[in-house]
Amino acid sequence: MSAKEPAKLDKLDKELLQLLQDDFPVEKRPWAELGKKLGIAEEEVLSRTKRLLSDGVIRKIRSILDAKKLGLCSSTLIAMKVPEEKMEKVVRIVNEYMSVTHNYRREHDYNLWFTITTCGDKDLRDTVEEIKRRAEIPDSDVLDLPDTRLFKIDVRFKFTDADTRR
C-alpha cells in the first residue's frame, strides 16, 4: 500500500480513530476503557490499533503539548522562492533541522513554506539566518513571517466525514 493511498477503514476503525484522537484515557487499562465505549474487547481494541499503526494510518499515540505553556518557545513561518533545480538540495538542508516542524511545497511563486520552532537556549534568528545562508537563497526571495498572535491550533479531524469523500 502506498503512503499516499487512503487505507480501507471500516466503521469501527473510524470510531476508534475518533476516540484515539480526541480522548485517549489516562487510566490503568486504557484499551479496556476504549473497548467499553466501542462495545468490543480490550484485545480487539489493541489489535486494531496495532494494525492501524502498521498500516501507517497512525504514526503514534503521544502527548500533545501546549508549546506556549512550556515557555521559551518561539516560531516563524518562512517562505522561499526556490528554483526547481535547487529544490531537492534546499529541502534536504531545511529538513536537517530538528526545529523545522513542517515543510511543504505550495502553489505560489514562493514555492517552499516551512515553520521553525525553537525552544530553550536555541535562538530562532540564528537558525533562520543559517538556513538562508546554507540554502543560498537571497533575502529578496525570502519571506520571514513570525507569528504575533496565536488564535488557534487544534489539529483534530472528524473521521466519519471520510464517507462523503468524492
Binding site: L9, L65, R156
Partner: peptide
Amino acid sequence: VIARLRKLISKGVVKRLGISVNQRKVGIV
C-alpha cells in the same frame, strides 16, 4: 505516572493524549 499526567493535563501543559494521523491515509488529501 497517571496522577502526574492528569495534573499536567489539568494545568494545560499537556493538552491531551492522542494519535498523530497520517492524513492522506484517512482520505484527508
